[in-house]
Design a protein around this nucleic acid. Sequence first.
DNA 1: TTGAATGCAAAAAATTTGCATATTG
DNA 2: CAATATGCAAATTTTTTGCATTCAA
Lengths: 125, 125
Amino acid sequence: MRVTAPRERVYAALTEAPHSTPEEIIERVNAAGGTPVPPSSVYRALEALEEIGLVTHTHLDHRAPTYHPADHNRHLHLVCRSCGVVLESPASIADPLVAELEQEHGFVADVTHMAIQGECRRCRS
Amino acid sequence: MRVTAPRERVYAALTEAPHSTPEEIIERVNAAGGTPVPPSSVYRALEALEEIGLVTHTHLDHRAPTYHPADHNRHLHLVCRSCGVVLESPASIADPLVAELEQEHGFVADVTHMAIQGECRRCRS
DNA sequence: TTGAATGCAAAAAATTTGCATATTG
DNA sequence: CAATATGCAAATTTTTTGCATTCAA
């Protein structure tokens, strides 16, 4: 795995703005100026970074996946339908559900990959 | 809301094959023969059916949404990463998590909209 | 009859691919 | 030096939109 400028710039963009879609990353990487990075290189960089575990992606909603630096404190993503805010909660909060799913269905769940939709405190009030 | 042929055919396709993507629905509706229904009409029919609550959609993975007839027994979707099988579980299995999320974050979760990724019993063995 | 819905074709949006060139290790 | 990664352009894929025509109520 080579360290290249596009990969470094994509990773930098993700630390500046986690939960970015590919499009947002493309824009951010290029907004910074310097040699432009074409979309195809951004897509390939994301793929590479994800493969070595530096980056992960999550599906927050019906749109494109969002990428962020891999976090060893895995977390659940909670997305508000009204305002779009993304809350995070330790993945462990779902441990009882995960255990139940395994017992009931023999299914080993990864609750961090897909967000949970709902409505946040502020929008409810 | 008018009852029209395209809408009836789209709904019929969903009862025959729930969890279909728009593309699959387009194919199924037209495979049946008869007057072809163009993609735009399928998309519009899905939107209309969803609006009146006859149909819902769920995000099973990174691909297109999948549609199915609305079910008053709401359920969680469990998707196996290896084989792609879609298991269902009563939404109530997540009640404790939902309660916890509300208490901790004031977030009212709808756990049925996004599937949970993981690995099914058969693929694990 | 008449407004809602369709069908068609074209546009838009998002992602992928092939290939020659440049670059890392 | 040799294999990997980039940049560019074109091709795909998926979904949306405008508009004249048709059809359900």
